[in-house]
Design a protein around this nucleic acid. Structure first.
Lengths: 202, 202
DNA sequence: GGACTGACAGATATTGAAATCTGTCAGTCC
DNA sequence: GGACTGACAGATTTCAATATCTGTCAGTCC
């Protein structure tokens, strides 16, 4: 008798099937075939096809979490840490988009299917941003009375460079400059050493 | 004999047909039927179906241009003018999205079909932003060495509040707060009265 | 007895023949 | 003679039959 069928093995096989056939064509029967079992066996580990896909999505997103965990290098200012984090996120997205567009599209589809998982993922990343900003507030480099709210604002302001809806622009020769311009604008907005404006706005 | 068939009349009829049937079902034959002419007549004014749709798109976008022309009220600071302009854009988009989702979706489809028209539209709006920012630089309220580049950055940073890909979030109870947070962050980034940061970032 | 199979019902997707649409143009009508 | 028509060819879409897939479960096999 072969090794026992594990959830892990099913997830690996599902990823492979998704990669080969794409999200529209990948079936539970294909996954079972790839594993050399009947498709009924797959259902002993995952209640539905949707649950199986969601597990794959969760797996993929948690890899991003690890990859993105911010490095608080002692020699770096908060602005540098923030800039590096945003750049790493952008580079990762852009690379996976340009190097394997098909797979990128596949995961985009999966992610759209399970909004709950995405929400958690986004909260996690904004949480990482919050910790970077909080560290900057601690050293009086940044100023904000609500780090979480400001982190969300930084996230929102940089959507162009991580939200897949904007992926088409990632190939443009101007993106690089636009990224720098937006990040600079945002970092300037965060800075502490600012004299109160003479003409405050409502 | 009835009035002569004009391009204008065809555009109006096309808008109506698009509204009723949606972009997928609206045909040139439908437009001709609505006008009481043969579909061959429509082709005397528009070379292809795509050209007809593009003309409708152009018409719709230029209405937005007029609506968005910024009001340089003497009593307002540049920050207030900028904030008001961004808010008006957001409110318009949000309203047309919530009040007639079907029509909003229809125009989203049309816009995706003719990328050239959109590019011009975006350039026009960023141009309006540029004039607002330039005015702020003139009064020393804002600081930038390249108003056009900065305007593009402001546009990019506020994508969440005007790009249709983010429309789903416009219904969330948090959007209002997120809009304020992003705009405040951006306006802070633009301000002139800033002491050079002690620890500049690379 | 617990992991697995495979046949099954209802739901979903595929396919190809028939219908409709796009774009053209010779001909009709003031 | 210029605005318009309507029949036409090729491209696209629709629709219904057919095939495949999802999820279940009674039964098989160590």
């Amino acid at each position: 008798m072969a090794e026992a069928l594990t959830a892990e093995a099913i997830l690996v096989a599902t990823e492979e099937v998704l990669r080969r056939y794409g999200p529209a064509k990948a079936t539970v029967v294909d996954v079972a075939k790839a594993l050399g079992v009947s498709h009924g066996s797959v259902y002993r580990h995952f209640a539905t096809k949707a649950a199986l896909r969601e597990a794959v999505t969760r797996r993929w997103l948690s890899a991003i979490h690890e990859e993105m965990t911010p490095a608080f290098d002692e020699g770096l200012t908060a602005a540098e840490t923030l800039r590096a984090w945003l750049r790493k996120l952008f580079e990762n997205k852009r690379r996976s988009h340009s190097e394997d567009l098909e797979l990128f599209t596949t995961y985009k589809t999966l992610v759209n299917e399970s909004s709950g998982v995405v929400e958690y993922h986004l909260e996690h990343l904004v949480g990482q941003l919050t910790s970077i900003i909080s560290a900057g507030v601690e050293t009086q480099e940044f100023s904000t009375d609500d780090a979480a709210r400001t982190a969300q604002a930084v996230w929102d302001a940089t959507q162009m460079f991580h939200h897949p809806a904007h992926a088409r622009q990632w190939g443009s020769p101007h993106v690089e400059d636009e990224f720098d311009a937006v990040v600079s604008l945002v970092v300037d907005g965060l800075r502490y050493n600012r004299v109160p404006s003479a003409t405050g706005d409502a």
